[in-house]
Design a protein around this nucleic acid. Structure first.
Length: 253
DNA sequence: TAGGCCATCTGGTCCT
DNA sequence: AGGACCAGATGGCCTA
């Protein structure tokens, strides 16, 4: 509809707001012209009715054309700002997501960003639970109760050796479908920022492999998987229904 | 060229 | 009343 306003933003998710420009385009487009015509017709009708009533002009509650235009522009501007803020938040979310960043990498779409974020949170939660379980197995419940700080440090230090959770595969599939990966196993990780996401190597980001989700155990973990034998790790346990649904969603993307 | 993604406008609804 | 939020409509840009 609004081609001029759209061209000014250059498809950035957080374009610079040029209110006057968009307003100009708004004034120039057909919808607004039709809107003005309708508004004029309505005001004329109202005037006729008031004259017919013969009374005083009672248009205090009914704004005139200019007021309606100003109101409309204000509302549009607010909505634009709201959407820009939303996009900024989306960009912030993209920045902390474990996918390849860079100019050569296509930006994640909004829906992909949200799905990826959800998967990422689920994966981290599962990993944390798994690490707690592992530490509990190693040190025993009493030892774990004695030093929770040690537990915490053990969790953080051993996180780098986490088996790849099936949820991570959905990250792979999502990223694989939306962008080319910057990080490979041979390339050094980029310098971490204060809010930098876990390194790609942490998530074992290699070449995206499509269809791995169909067989999560395929590259499941450092656990050894024997045919016909149940795996002891909780990461190999069936995922919640919601997660499975999300997997299919992500795969369909 | 079709489809995906996006920005913007717009009207409705709810809340303060 | 004014603002926030939401969803539908519309049209532009980009990619396969």
């Amino acid at each position: 509809m609004d081609s001029d306003a759209g061209s000014t933003c250059s498809r950035s998710s957080s374009p610079d707001l040029v209110v006057d420009d968009s307003a100009g385009s708004f004034f120039s487009n057909k919808m607004f012209q039709r809107y003005c015509e309708e508004n004029r017709a309505e005001s004329e009708t109202r005037q006729g009715s008031t004259e017919r009533c013969g009374g005083k002009t009672k248009n205090r509650s009914e704004p005139n054309k200019d007021e309606v235009q100003d109101l409309r522009l204000k509302v549009n501007s607010r909505e634009r700002k709201r959407m820009h803020d939303l996009n900024q938040a989306m960009d912030g979310l993209r920045e902390v997501m474990p996918y390849a960043h860079g100019p050569s990498v296509r930006k994640l779409s909004k829906i992909s960003t949200l799905l990826l974020a959800r998967n990422y949170i689920l994966m981290l939660s599962s990993s944390l639970e798994e690490m707690k379980k592992l530490v509990g197995d190693v040190y025993g419940s009493s030892a774990a109760a004695q030093s929770r700080s040690a537990t915490h440090s053990a969790i953080t230090s051993t996180a780098a050796h986490l088996p790849l959770h099936p949820l991570a595969q959905s990250l792979h599939s999502l990223v694989g479908t939306t962008s080319a990966l910057q990080h490979h196993s041979s390339s050094p990780p980029s310098a971490p920022t204060p809010h930098s996401p876990p390194a790609a190597s942490f998530l074992s980001f290699h070449t995206p492999v499509q269809g791995l989700l169909k067989d999560p155990l395929h590259l499941a973990s450092s656990y050894r998987h024997f045919p016909g034998m149940p795996c002891p790790c909780t990461l190999c346990q069936p995922l919640p229904a919601t997660t499975s649904t999300l997997h299919s969603l992500a795969m369909n993307k």
